[in-house]
């Protein structure tokens, strides 16, 4: 391998490893996993340097490898979901408490989010929402994150998560309720 290219690659590690690591951590909420994934990303990139067109952005290229690795991780950990996890039980209790035994909202006072029309332009709100997503139990998060993956339909996701379709939208429902609780607790306009 050409020494120049080698130096170039080392420079990429210097420039991009922090942002790649932070992104992986943001997506997995697990430091060790994030570190492993970033290492794998750079190793894979290094091995396939021939495929990289030097007129394109190294950052974009590295991120596309990284995102594939993150999705692989989601898939792998989904296979390990067999029973309800402990953290899930805690969150289930919290979301159950939003409704009384008849299934009506316990808190009848309307919890609206102020300035709803423009909320997604609000940086503070986006930060809170990102943090709240990070705090979801792992498999709810997997369910909701995979819902928005491009080129993926619900039945594929259910297959990957090893759940039925009704389990799937129930999980999304719970995840949204939990996000609602978290946002109302942490975001005041």
């Amino acid at each position: 391998m050409n020494k120049n290219i080698n130096n170039q690659f080392t420079e990429w590690v210097n420039i991009y490893s922090d942002i790649l690591y932070s992104w992986a951590y943001h997506k997995t909420s697990n430091k060790e996993i994030a570190e492993d994934i970033v290492q794998e990303t750079f190793m894979a990139a290094f091995k396939s340097l021939n495929n990289f067109k030097f007129d394109s952005q190294p950052k974009t290229w590295l991120f596309s490898i990284l995102n594939n690795k993150i999705i692989d991780y989601y898939r792998k950990s989904a296979k390990n979901i067999v029973n309800t996890t402990k953290d899930e039980q805690v969150f289930m209790k919290a979301t159950d408490e939003l409704f009384n035994s008849d299934g009506h909202w316990t808190n009848t006072s309307l919890s609206t989010w102020q300035d709803e029309e423009h909320l997604l332009d609000n940086q503070d709100f986006n930060t809170v929402l990102s943090l709240c997503i990070g705090k979801l139990p792992n498999n709810w998060r997997l369910a909701i994150e995979s819902k928005y993956q491009k080129d993926k339909n619900a039945s594929e996701i259910c297959k990957e998560l090893n759940i039925t379709s009704s389990n799937y939208w129930q999980m999304i429902h719970r995840a949204k309720l939990q996000l609602k609780i978290c946002i109302e607790k942490n975001w005041t306009n």
């Binding site: 080698n6 080392t10 590690v13 210097n14 490893s17 570190e35 290492q39 750079f42 190793m43 290094f46």
Partner: peptide, 9 residues
């Protein structure tokens, strides 16, 4: 992490 990766490379 940076160090580890560079070492590995």
């Amino acid at each position: 992490l940076k160090e580890t990766i560079i070492k590995k490379i």
